[in-house]
Every structure is written in structure tokens, then in C-alpha cells.
Write a protein that binds this DNA or RNA. Structure first.
Lengths: 352, 352
DNA sequence: CTTCGTATTGTTATCGATCACATACTTATA
DNA sequence: TATAAGTATGTGATCGATAACAATACGAAG
């Protein structure tokens, strides 16, 4: 073939409402009305339009519509640029929901820090014709307020944050179950490896952990700060293990737990005989680790979808909001990495 | 505050070229020309326009521009919907490159199979005003051809596929290094766990593996088919281990390798003493597994970026193409999971 | 049989940019 | 200095849709 794809695009030129109108023998406005609300047309007219549309394979030019209505039907998803610890399943859930509501989701990586990041955010929002934004990365409150002046912005997890503040069921609530599980196994002093506190999910899990420890009547052996990476989990676990009375570690995600398990291994400690480890997120690989990882199974798609529903609700103040899914399904999955607390006092066997 | 974000948007209404023109004392067309190519204006005029734009904080309405020019500056990224085995780092790389070239990247999940999927693809391309598409999921050649009629479509990995066919350096070439590595450790009979063959990357790795085994003068103990998941890696490894003379497994990605290692563990086999395992992709967690995983480090961002460059090149036939990055950096990372071949013949120790 | 109200449809303006062409203004050349 | 050629700018049309308003058709009430 001699034609490039770009050239052969010509014959496929999309039909306009005018062509549809001519073929149907009505005015273009009638066609427009058909699309807005076909029930306002007489059945016979409606059918004529329908037939013409089908014949011409008509699909509306969204650009033209946007120009006229000023509604863009484009949403912005902000994702972490560098970090590979972002669950793309959440993005998929959000994108699917957006699509179902007739919106397109543009994904943009928000990188950098401080003022540079603020400037970048501003530039994206100023230039782009977005109706709203959904951020999977933490945004400082000043940046958020500034952005909110232009379009609705929803930050993933912040709603859960609020729910927890109100004592309602939130994303972090499974932390309660974890602590109870460990207490039930006889652990009297446990520790937490926390994610970066800018992230609502990390705050949430930590807060519920603290609360639950008190509630279960066991001791908090300390909280180690980490980012979401296995490397930081490794470092954190080594530090925590200085306290030899800690018999269980609850990590804020599976990657941290993997790093922690490796640290315990390097310290000559056995999981779960010496120390139990619990993760969070239930990565598909976690079931196949040695030992397999006790963790919290999350419906991340549903979480993404739920966050998107929040944004959609903010977008259309009056309109009927699609049903928001119930509280995200969470389930503690018991595997090999958690077990009964050791009876005797622990001693580091290998190099510390 | 009583105003909703939507309402307070009002005062921020963007200026148009007409307002800029009036303020600058020129015609709207002059302003338009300024944006297209300011060098065609007289210095004095250019400056007037510039000043007016700055004062009004003018930014062009991309929607209106698109309507007129038919150029959309929006690209489509197709990602697997259900599968969590998609490296989002590739997407990030692609998105960044698109952005740098002035394009927005819309992410859409392509799910389903067969005709349903074809229909979905068609609907996305028909409705959406996309200038081009980049697919991270395999697309059947008929679907691809059909899509190509409308806009340029690039499928990630297929270019590498072609390069391999030409005997040039491709994504799969590290498989050669892996096989050589294992042969060097004394392994005489090894096996491969292959990814789904619709995926170019899986085809690539398998093809180079087959070739390299012959080249290294060792035996191919067989190829087990799998999807990308740890679960399928587990099943595949158990099946392969029926052949007791296989002493090393090369898995097409890290998740498969994790599943394989678990299967070996359940069979009472030690890694690497009894069987060596090598993965691919170097997930950040792989260094922290027990045993840590020998794998291939990939610059996935660069791969995503490179694929995007291909698309950009297809988009602008004549225009100067931004420099395509060199062959993607790949490096075999040696860790604990691979070691010398065992001397004696292996026997399954535990339940088979 | 008129009159009126409502349901349906048509006509024209509009969104904010670019394109095509006309015109005014420079500059170079004879 | 006159004229041609080239450069810079302005005017009106156009992209494909929706909005606002006008006009018509139809049926019920007077």
C-alpha cells in the first residue's frame, strides 16, 4: 500500500450533525436535541434521526461540544512519578468509573518537591481543560486550596482520613484486626513500620494501630518511619529489633514487610517462630513468598472507583450521583508469616 | 465560604485572543500569528502582544484550537485492565515523553477478549479525538490494522520483536546473558517459564532463550507456558521439575520466578543448591527475597519513553523527530538465587 | 370557528481559535 | 521617483456542536 495511515484517514472523516440532519430530513438542532434527550422528540422523528445516525456511523465531535458547552469531560489523575509503589489497580478502578460516567481520565505524573512541584501543578491546571482532578499523591493543603479555586480536586484517601476522625469505618480499620490477631497469638509487644506520613493511607494505618494497641491491652514497641519501599522496611526492621522484647511487626504495606522479613533473616531470626510479620495490600506475590505473608486483602479497584465517585459527585452538585460503593472490602489473610508468640526471651544469633 | 469551587471559577474566566488583541491594539489574527510564529511579526507589534498577554494572563483555549485545526494533541495509552502485572514505570516514561512533546496521554484500560474487545477498541477510537495510540497490551493483527486506518497505533514491544528478527539488539537480548551465566555455573540442562505469547516481550525472551541454549551447547529442558502471574509460575515450575535433570529455571519475569521458587520450596528443593532460578525485570522487592533473586535490571521508563518516541515519529511524518534513546539499558543482576549446578543427581525429598 | 397553550421543530447566534484572502505598508530596484 | 515585489496586518468565513429565540402544528377550551 502506498498510503500512510494518516492519509487513509481521509475517507473515514466523521459525519456531522448537519449531514445526519439532511439525511433524516430534519434540522440540525433536532439532531442535537435527540442527543440531549430523545424523549423530547416525537417518536417518528426520533426514529428517523436514529436511522440516519446509524447509517452514517455518526459519533459526536466532543471537541466542538466542549467549545460550546465549556464542559470538558476530561479529568486529571495525578500519580506519583518516580515511585513504583503506586497501586495501579486503584488507577484502573478510577479510570473505569470515569469512563462509565462519560469522562476521560488523563494521567499526569506529579513529581518534584516544594515550590517546583507547586509551579508544576499550577501549570497543569492552568493549561489543561480539566473539569476536575483526582490525586493519588499527597498534596500540601496550600497547594490543594489553590487548586480547588479552579476545579474540584479530590485527594485519594483523605476522605477515609476524615471518616476515621469521625470514628467511622475507614481504610485503616483493618489495622485493628491485625493488632487483635497478633494479641490473640500471645504477642505482648509489637511494632509498626509506618509509610510516609504525607500519605493519608499511611496516617490512617498508623493512627488505627496506635489506638488498637491500647485497646488490645498490649505494648507499642515503637513506630519506625519509612517510605513505601522494601529497602526502607529493611532498615526500619533492623532498628526495631534492637528491642529484643518485640515479637511482631506490622508493616504498612507488603513491600515494607518483605524488607522487614529479609532484615529478620539477616539477623538470624526466624519468621514466624521468633518474630511474626504482617503486611498490607495483599500483592499477588505475597502468597508465594517463603514464608508466605499474612496481609490485608484490599479491593484496590473499588477504592479507586470510590474516590472517583467522590470527584464525580463534586463535579455535578445537583445531578443524581451514581451509587457510591459500600465500605471497601478488606480482609485479613492469614498465612505463614504470623504465628504464636515465642515463649522464651529472644537473643540475636548472628551478627547484629 | 459560601461559594462552591465551581462558582468561584467565574472571576478566573480566561481571556481570549480578542481581548488580547484589543488591549494590544491589533487584530485578533495578529495575536494568533504571534502564537504560531512570533518571528513573522514586527518586533514592535510582537512586543505589544506580549505585554497584553502577560497582563491578561492569557492562555490559549486548546479546545477551540483543536476544533479548528483538527489536531488534538491527545494520545491514547491502552493498558491491561485486570492484570496487575503491568509495569506502570513504562507508562510513566511514556507519559513524560508525551508531555514533553506537548501531548496529553489518556489512559484507558482495554479489557475483555475476542469480538467484545474489538468492539470496545473500535468505540474508543471512534469517539475519542485521539491523534495516536500506544498500546501496552497485545492487539490482534486484524484489530491493529483496523485501528491503523484511523490513527497511528504503536504496540509496545513489537518494534523490539522486529529488531530481534533482524538479528539486532532487542529487549530480549539479555536472555542470552542469562543462559550464558547458567552455563558458566555448570548447568547442563535448564528450562524456561514463558509469559503469554501474545506479548511481544514474552515471545522475545522465549526466542532468544531457545537460540542461546543451542549457542551455549547445553540442553533445553523444556518450556512451560504461563501467564505473568506467580500462581502460573508455581504450576509451571512443579510441572518442569518432573524432569529431575533440570538444574536451573529461567522465568520470563520476577513474579513467575517467585512462584517458581515457592514451588521448589514446596518440593523440598533448595534454591540455589538444588535448582537455580533467574527472573526478569528486577522488581524493587526482588533484592529482599529469601533467597534474593538473580534477575535482569531494566530501565522500564526508558522503554516506555522509547515506545512513545516511535509513536511521535509516526505522528509527524516530516517534522524533526526527537532523538530516540539508545538501546534500553539491561543488566544481569547476580544474587543468591543462582549458583553452581549441583554435582549429584537430584531426588525429590518431600511430597511430589 | 376562533383562540390559546403546549409540544415540537427550525433559524440564527455563539464558543475561541485558525485559515484564506484582501489590503496596507515597506523596501528594493529600475 | 515610480513601480514591483515582498512583508505585515486586517476582515470575514469556518470548524461542529449547543443556546436562545422564533415559528409552526396540534388539540382543547370558549
Amino acid at each position: 500500500m502506498t498510503k500512510t495511515p494518516a492519509e487513509s484517514q481521509q475517507p473515514a472523516r466523521a459525519a456531522t450533525i448537519y449531514e445526519v440532519a439532511r439525511l433524516a430530513g430534519v434540522s440540525h438542532q433536532t439532531v442535537s436535541r435527540y442527543m440531549a434527550d430523545r424523549s423530547k422528540l416525537r417518536a417518528a422523528t426520533s426514529e428517523k434521526v436514529e436511522r440516519a445516525m446509524a447509517e452514517l456511523k455518526y459519533s459526536p465531535n466532543l471537541t466542538a461540544r466542549s467549545l460550546r458547552t465549556k464542559a470538558t469531560y476530561r479529568l486529571l489523575a495525578l500519580v506519583p512519578g518516580a515511585s513504583p509503589y503506586f497501586p495501579s489497580r486503584m488507577l484502573n478502578g478510577a479510570a473505569a468509573t470515569a469512563q462509565a460516567a462519560g469522562y476521560q481520565l488523563d494521567v499526569v505524573a506529579l513529581e518534584g518537591t516544594g515550590p517546583e512541584r507547586t509551579a508544576r501543578l499550577r501549570r497543569i491546571l492552568d493549561g489543561g481543560p480539566f473539569a476536575g482532578a483526582l490525586s493519588f499523591v499527597p498534596i500540601s493543603s496550600t497547594d490543594l486550596l489553590q487548586a480547588q479555586e479552579r476545579i474540584p480536586v479530590v485527594v485519594a484517601g483523605e476522605y477515609d482520613d476524615k471518616m476515621r476522625g469521625q470514628g467511622r469505618i475507614s481504610d485503616g480499620s483493618a489495622a485493628q484486626t491485625i493488632v487483635a490477631h497478633l494479641a490473640g497469638l500471645g504477642h505482648r509487644r509489637i511494632a509498626h513500620i509506618a509509610g510516609p506520613q504525607e500519605w493519608p493511607a499511611a496516617r490512617n494505618r498508623l493512627a488505627v494501630y496506635r489506638q488498637a494497641v491500647g485497646h488490645a491491652g498490649i505494648e507499642d514497641g515503637g513506630v519506625a518511619d519509612a517510605d513505601w519501599s522494601s529497602a526502607s522496611g529493611y532498615t526500619a526492621a533492623r532498628a526495631l529489633m534492637a528491642d529484643t522484647s518485640i515479637t511482631a511487626i506490622f508493616a504498612a504495606n507488603d513491600q515494607l514487610a518483605i524488607g522487614a522479613m529479609r532484615a529478620l533473616h539477616d539477623l538470624g531470626l526466624n519468621v514466624p517462630a521468633d518474630v511474626s510479620v504482617v503486611g498490607w495490600d495483599d500483592h499477588p506475590e505475597s502468597a508465594f513468598l517463603v514464608p508466605s505473608l499474612t496481609t490485608v486483602q484490599m479491593d484496590l479497584e473499588a477504592q479507586g472507583s470510590s474516590t472517583m465517585h467522590q470527584l464525580l459527585a463534586a463535579l455535578t452538585p445537583g445531578a443524581p450521583v451514581p451509587p457510591e460503593p459500600g465500605p471497601t472490602a478488606m480482609r485479613l489473610v492469614l498465612r505463614e508469616s504470623s504465628g504464636p508468640a515465642p515463649s522464651g526471651r529472644r537473643q540475636t544469633r548472628l551478627n547484629p
